[in-house]
Structure formats: C-alpha cells, structure tokens
Design a protein around this nucleic acid. Sequence first.
DNA 1: TGGGACACGGAGCGGAAGCA
DNA 2: TGCTTCCGCTCCGTGTCCCA
Length: 278
Amino acid sequence: MTSRDPRAPELARLAGLIADETRAACLLALLDGRAWTAGELARHAGVAASTASEHLHRLVAGGVLAEERQGRHRYVRLADARVAQLVEDLAAQVAPGAVVRRPRGLRETSSGSAMARGRTCYDHFAGRLGIAVTDALTARGLLLPTSEPEGRAGVERSTARRPEGLSTGGLSTPAGAPRRRTSEERATGFALTDAGLRWFDSAGITLDRTSRRPLARACLDWTERRPHLAGVAGAALCRHALDVGWCVRIGSARAVKVTPEGERALSELLGIEAEALH
DNA sequence: TGGGACACGGAGCGGAAGCA
DNA sequence: TGCTTCCGCTCCGTGTCCCA
C-alpha cells in the first residue's frame, strides 16, 4: 500500500483555482505586474463585474492574488513572483496551441507582434527584448546558464569566456577557480557572475541582495521558446529601464517599446544592436 | 434527477467627483 | 460644506450546463 504524497491536496487546490477560463484570463492580465480593479479585469475577461468579483474573491482567498483597497476601488495583483512564474510557465506550455489560432483583425495582429517584440513578464522583460538582453549578458560573461545536466555542466567549463565567479545570491569564487554548482543554481537556470554583479552596480541598477528570491533565474519565454532572465536581477533591470525611459509601456497591455535613449543605452552597455530590439 | 460550478442581472451600499 | 450624481463593488436569486 502506497502513501499519498502530502503535497497532493495543496496541488489540487491550486490547480483548481487556476483551472477556470475567466480566472486564467485574469491571471494572464495580471502578469503585467500591475494592480487591476475588478471592473477592469471583468472587461478584460469578458464577464460581468459581479462574476469577476466572485472569481477574484476566490483567488485572493486561495492566496494566488493579493488585494489592496483604496477608497471605493479594490485593486488586486499577483500575490508574489512565484505565482507569476507558475502562470507564465503554464502559459508557455500551452502557447503552441495559442499561436496556431489566427489573429482576429489588424488590432489583434499588431498587438500580438508588439507583445512578441517586447513585453513585461510580471516584473521583468520577455519577448525578443528579454531574449536580446539575456543573450547579451550571457555573451559578455555576465550571466551563465546553469541548467545543463550535472554530468556536463556541474563543473565550470574552462573556456576563453569563463567568468571570474558565479552568483545567484552573492556567491562567488576566485577568478578561474572551477567549482561545482549548488543545487539552487542548477534549479534557477541562470547565475550572475561577479562581473555581472559589477555590471549591474556600474549601470546604477540596485540589486536587492536581501530578498529570498533568486538573484537570477530563467523564465521560459512563450513566444521565443527560450529562457530569459528573471529573478531579482531581471526585475531590477526592467524597473530601471522603465524608470529612466529606456522603455515605455504600449497602451494598457504588457507590451513595451524600446525608446531611442534605450537603444543607445543598451548598445553602449551591452552591445545590443537596435535591430535585435524591433 | 440532483448537485455542483459558473454566469448573469438587479438591488443596495459606499466612495469619489462635481457643483452650488 | 453639503448635496447630488456617477461609478464600482458586493450580495442574492436565478438560469444553464455538465456529470454522476
């Protein structure tokens, strides 16, 4: 007789909360990292406000969403980055089916291509913009992929681009000293190198080293089908880019556009060609 | 056929904004 | 400052659909 996995009830409860088209639509909308009112989410999901209100109550009660009351408005947002990661990962798994569906009209076509160019994934960059930034950081030895099988990637390769050290949460080793990766680093998919930490510092981007969230982690991109940078570093980079005007949001959706200032900055700091951003 | 889940509309409440 | 209007949210009752 086998004993049931103790995680089963919690997994079933969480899956049940997400397993509704209206609630899924709300969760996907909330991936932009902003707080929405019930009315906005109702219009977005195409249901009555009362229906949306009921669904949002369940998600808040289930710990998936966090709410904040301000006057007569009730704002809801994703409870934390782990929820965002879960929704984005699930969305990435079903993206192939979504891509097959033909866009309905010019508006949906242009909106979809803008999302594919660049968007926010909760609090970090995704789409071609997210991939371009991740590739540039990796090419410069500022970021290392860490998710390869242990047999091949468990020990640092001694290549010409090998960085001085690794860091997901402040870890580092002397330059050139191969070391085994921790299970946490392998699990997160990316690790910032010491040079990467210095790059963020020199770019004026503050990293919250006290956060329990991984400093760098991989998030599967549903349009590019490749991992992009998430975690504390991904969020800080995105926040900084929006704050200083490297990027601007397009309308009320998650799509973002790189400004001419952003093109210059990303070219100077990371050597990213403007064509890679559009 | 009954129960559960979901959706909707109407009524009521309360806060924000506008105006005298 | 107080009144009115508008708007958003919630509660409640009801209808529909699906499944055992």
